[in-house]
């Protein structure tokens, strides 16, 4: 394992641990309110990510309906993002598959979906 790989793995592990810790710290049964989104506080608009924390907390509780209500886009985007990350991480092993999955239209669709979600949720 190269030094760079180890560095990336460590960073990912720390990030995952901090997210779980934050979810635990702000879990509604623990007493603390969920973290307020700074963009929302500043502009009054929901950004594409607003509610994703509560959505994943609701998912941890097994409350799918509540999770959907907090941020439906995050629930759909999470597995897609994980899939894309795995495809890109192994792009040297499957260059053609990588090119097929990360097509121009995939990227345009992703950008359009984020933009559309941002507009729709602020209607």
């Amino acid at each position: 394992m190269s030094g760079r790989t180890r560095l990336i793995l460590t960073a990912v592990a720390i990030a995952v641990a901090s997210v779980i810790f934050m979810l635990y710290l702000t879990h509604s049964s623990y007493g603390a309110p969920p973290l307020r989104c700074g963009i929302k506080a500043l502009t009054g608009f929901d950004c594409p990510g607003c509610g994703s924390q509560r959505a994943f907390q609701a998912l941890l509780r097994g409350d799918l309906a509540a999770a959907w209500g907090y941020n439906a886009f995050a629930l759909i985007a999470a597995p897609v993002a994980v899939f894309l990350i795995v495809v890109e991480a192994g792009r040297e092993c499957w260059p053609r598959f990588h090119r097929a999955v990360l097509s121009k239209w995939t990227i345009i669709a992703a950008a359009a979906a984020v933009a559309a979600w941002w507009i729709i949720r602020n209607q």
Binding site: G49, N71, F83, L84, I85, P95, H98
Partner: peptide
């Protein structure tokens, strides 16, 4: 081989980081 587009990471960042800078990343993807 095609360089990484970081599309998946940028989508994750857009959804999780509360800062919609990931959208600029998606444009670079």
């Amino acid at each position: 081989p095609m360089p990484s587009t970081y599309l998946g990471w940028n989508i994750a960042a857009t959804v999780l980081c509360c800062i919609p800078l990931g959208i600029i990343g998606i444009i670079y993807s």
